[in-house]
Amino acid sequence: MTRWIAQNRGFAAALVLFAALYFSYHLMHPRGFSTAVLVQNANELVAIGFVAMAQTVPVLLGGLDLSVGAVMTLAACVASWLLDGTPAQIALGMIATLAVGAGFGLMNGLIVVYGRLQPIIATLATGAIAIGLALLIRPNPGGNVDGDLNWALTNSVYDFAETYGFARGGDAAWLQPFVNIPVPLILLFGTACLVWLPFKRTVTGRTIYAIGSAEGAAYASGLPIDRARIAAFTLAGFFAACGGLYLAIQTSTGNADVVQAGAYTLNSIAAVVLGGTALLGGTGGVIASILGAMILRAVSFYFRILDIDPLLQPLIEGIVLLTAVSAVAFRTFGVKNQLELFR
C-alpha cells in the first residue's frame, strides 16, 4: 500500500483532493448523498471525462493532441444525424460515429508517424479540419436523437432497466444493489476498463509508456514505436468520439461550436495534469485523467451551492487550476542538484 502510494503519488494526491472536495460538496448540498445529485453530476462529467481520456494517450507518448475537442464536436455532429429509428439503425449509427472518431485519430497518427511532424502542430491543423467537417455536417445546431435512448443513458440504472424493460423493469432482486448507480458513470468507467486496461497490457500499450520515458531506448529495444504512435492517436480519436456520442445523446443535438471545442481541448489538458500524468510522457494513465476531470467538475459544482457571483466563477476556476499545478511544482525548491531541473 505504501509502495503503491509512493509509485503513484500524483494519482493518490488527486484521489484525496477529489474525495475531500466531493464529500464536503455533498455535506453542504441541501439534497446531498441522493441519486438525483449523483446522476446530475455524472452527466456533467462524461463528455469532459472522455475527452480527458482521449488526451491522456498522446500525452503518455510525450505528445499532445490539440484536436480532441474538435473530434468530439465532429462526432457529436455525426451522431446527431444517425441516432434515430429502429434499434438496429441506432446501433449502426453509434458504431458509425465511433468509427468516424477512430478514423480521424488514425489519420492524425499516420500524419504524425509518416509525415514526421510534431504532434502538437499537426493536430492543431487537423483540429481545424475536424471543425470544418463538423460545420459542413451541421451548419446550424440541431438534431434528432431517440428519446428513450436519451432518457435511459442519462439516468440511473433503474431508469435504464425500466425504459428497456429488462430485469422485470428494474425491480429484479439481483439488480437492487446497482439501481442507484448513474448509467453515465458506468459508461465512462466501463469504457476505460474494457478498452484501456486490456490495451495497456499489450506490447503496443507498453510501448506507448516506453516512448514517453525514453524514445531512443524504446527504438533501440526493438519496440514497435510506429505502431504504438498510430494506435495512441487512433485511441484518442475513439475516446473523443465516445465523448461526442454521449454529448449528442445527452443534449439531443449536434452543434459545431468552435469555442466549445477549444474549451474542451484546453480543459482536457488541465484534467490530464490534475490527474497526475506528466506532460513529458511516460507516467500516468487514463483512469487518473478521469479523476482529474472529476476534480475540475467538482470545483464548478461548488458555484451552485455556495451562491458565488457568476461573474467571479471564471476567476476562481483559473486560480484553482493555477494553484493546483503550482503546488506540485514547489518540490523544485527542495532539489539539491540544480542540474536535475534541466533537460
Binding site: L266, V273, L279, V325, F330
Partner: peptide
C-alpha cells in the same frame, strides 16, 4: 516553478 508552459500559461 518549472510548471510546463502549456498548462501554466493556460491557467
Amino acid at each position: 516553478l518549472r510548471v510546463p508552459s502549456m498548462i501554466f500559461t493556460l491557467g
